[in-house]
Design a protein around this nucleic acid. Structure first.
Lengths: 170, 170
DNA sequence: TATTGTTATACTCTATAACTATA
DNA sequence: TATAGTTATAGAGTATAACAATA
């Protein structure tokens, strides 16, 4: 159990980490955005799987997964094979072209990280990975507690302001 | 200097952490999305500041910052005061209503985190914060290295596929 | 009826570029 | 000319809900 100030700081760090993710996204090829790259990576690591499994690993809704997968399939990087055990389902399979793409992605991110984290020790990177992984687990468990909170007072909204820099008077 | 496998794992964890952020976002009031909440938090912690300073702390473009700020000002949670030292600039200031809003936000996130991280020690949370902060610093430094990578072979794109679940034959 | 995926729609966040007003 | 901030526009990512096909 940690202190409240720590919780707030953690939220700020989570928010700020977005800049790192965007930085990583900038080195991706134009036809392979972050979402697609994540799918390729997971297929490369876990092998063939169904849509539902992929959605779970990505931690996003299956409708989102479907869009990413469609994008990849359109480029021939993955195939959607029929599942002999369940005709509603589709087995996702990395193609040779997809593997090439994945190698390319891996090279790009490794280059960037090797540059940015040149002064990190193997152990430090391992610690960060371990703690982030645990953080994810801590949230992944209980989908139960909706954690509702009382609402605040209402107030008039002028929606979309206008300029009012220095003294408005000329 | 860490191993390549670690780098790839780190990228996956960064990608997956998005689920945690979205979970935090779900407990926010409808009229105060994550971007607005981040602005309120930074103003609460660092006090009055200019747009450019806020953009730097948020680690996003100033145009993005401007939109968030406009949203907050429209609701009376912050004010954009003239800067006596530079008439182009505006000083952002949290209003009493904004402070109330901030307290509410703080309560919500603290509740959620206290629930999710109930089995984390104070020290563990501190370690995660420290490592994430350092990660950010490692990326924030060198805006220089564009880190370009050779392109991959082109291929025909069928753009947006259609259904082909089980055996296409009926 | 319940489940697997797909698609339509809408919303948030972001960056780029053009623009205004100061410096 | 250069800088601070705004706005228009476009693109990526996501969720919800309605729908199709199959279990």
């Amino acid at each position: 159990m940690a202190a409240q100030a720590q919780y707030e700081e953690l939220v700020r760090q989570l928010s700020a980490i977005g800049a790192v993710k965007r930085d990583l996204g900038r080195i991706l090829p134009a036809d392979c955005p972050a979402g697609s790259a994540a799918v390729l990576t997971l297929l490369g690591r876990h092998g063939d799987m169904r849509m539902s499994k992929l959605a779970e690993l990505l931690a996003v809704d299956m409708s989102v997964t479907s869009r990413h997968v469609t994008h990849l399939a359109a480029r021939g990087w993955i195939e959607r094979l029929p599942d002999p055990a369940d005709k509603r389902s589709r087995i996702l399979h990395l193609t040779p072209a997809g593997l090439d793409r994945l190698d390319d992605l891996s090279r790009r991110t490794t280059h960037l990280l090797a540059d940015r984290l040149s002064d990190w020790s193997d152990d430090e990177v391992g610690q960060l990975i371990r703690l982030m992984s645990r953080l994810r687990d801590s949230f992944g468990d209980c989908r139960s507690h909706p954690v509702r909170i009382p609402a605040a007072a209402a107030a008039p909204v002028i929606e979309e302001t206008t300029r009012t820099p220095a003294n408005t008077r000329k």
